[in-house]
């Protein structure tokens, strides 16, 4: 119930800000509002937290295909098959004038047999809602000074739906907010896209196991790096590394690694496949598996 009302408020905010931004723009230069003008793949894909980026790491790119001339957005769905878990997430994001991104993602972690082991019941699914906002501050991922990356700051407010589980595993709170700053650049002379993000967070497994613990409840800087090589207009391969806090006493948390390939099937549809190593999750070690994500952007 609570989740729903939050959603409704977010939806209203989205459309409100859309209409104010647009009406502010309409009278003077209605003919200049243009959507869908970005070059292929330069909007990135959707992360598991709903923001524009790689698969696991958030980038400074603004979701959707619109440039500073218009409003765009994307919807995505992601599945990750792991030895002991099944992950699904989906989300929507809206990009305003390649400047502001608002996003929502819903994450579901099916614990399968681990649910039994943890006394939650087989197939117990942990859920979380992530509300994000990102503001581009400077630079351009493609154009301009080749040494000035696109820089953005962002927040992700996360609300776990499993307060009882969070408390049982020792998480201090089922809700938390991450703050990040991100720099992304496509180095055309090398066909390489590089991203570095510093995230201040106390999330346990991105928040699915809550935030902080009795002993460790401060935001700590974590690093997310991506390196990708553009093989063609449509095809890019790369890898990512994401460090994570390790707050919970009962279960170790590891850094995440992935190797990905993203292919733009059309101007609007991008499919991403990755090998992911998510390390140890809630006592189950070696969670290595496959990620598949589909994004539709306009």
């Amino acid at each position: 119930m609570k989740d729903l009302s939050v959603l409704r408020v977010a939806a209203c905010l989205f459309s409100l800000s859309a209409s104010t931004l647009v009406s502010a723009n309409l009278p003077a230069q209605a003919q200049d509002l243009r959507n869908g003008g970005k070059l292929l793949l330069t909007n990135g894909v959707s992360t598991i937290e709903g923001s524009g980026g790689g698969g696991l790491a958030t980038w400074s790119t603004i979701a959707g295909n619109a440039t500073q001339e218009g409003i765009g957005g994307s919807v995505h769905g992601t599945v990750i098959e792991l030895p002991d878990y099944n992950w699904t997430s989906f989300g929507v994001s809206v990009g305003f004038f390649d400047r502001l991104e608002l996003s929502y993602a819903r994450q579901n972690l099916d614990t399968i047999d681990i649910g039994t082991a943890l006394g939650l019941g087989r197939g117990y699914t942990l859920n979380q809602n992530v509300f994000g906002a990102k503001l581009k501050l400077a630079g351009d991922v493609v154009y301009g000074d080749p040494l000035l990356p696109q820089i953005a700051i962002g927040v992700q407010h996360k609300r776990s739906s499993d307060a009882a589980v969070v408390a049982a595993v020792g998480g201090a709170s089922p809700n938390g907010t991450d703050f990040y700053i991100s720099a992304t650049k496509l180095f055309l002379s090398q066909s390489v896209l590089a991203n570095a993000t510093v995230r201040f967070t106390k999330a346990n497994q991105t928040g699915l196991l809550g935030f902080g613990s009795a002993t460790d409840s401060n935001h700590k800087p974590q690093f997310e790096g991506s390196l990708a090589y553009q093989l063609s207009r449509r095809f890019v391969v790369g890898g990512e590394y994401r460090t994570k806090p390790n707050n919970l006493g009962i279960a170790r948390e590891d850094d995440w690694v992935d190797l990905f390939a993203a292919y733009a099937l059309t101007r609007n549809v991008t499919v991403t496949a990755a090998y992911v190593d998510l390390g140890s999750i809630a006592t189950a070690d070696n969670q290595r598996g496959a990620l598949l994500s589909l994004q539709a952007a306009f």
Binding site: A11, Q31, L33, N35, G72, G73, V92, V94
Partner: peptide, 22 residues
């Protein structure tokens, strides 16, 4: 969802002036 519909509608709208220009 509202905003998506809104943005989609905008995409339609912005085609009009262009067409009229030809």
């Amino acid at each position: 969802m509202i905003s998506i519909a809104f943005a989609l509608a905008l995409m339609g709208v912005q085609d009009l002036p262009a067409a009229a220009d030809i």
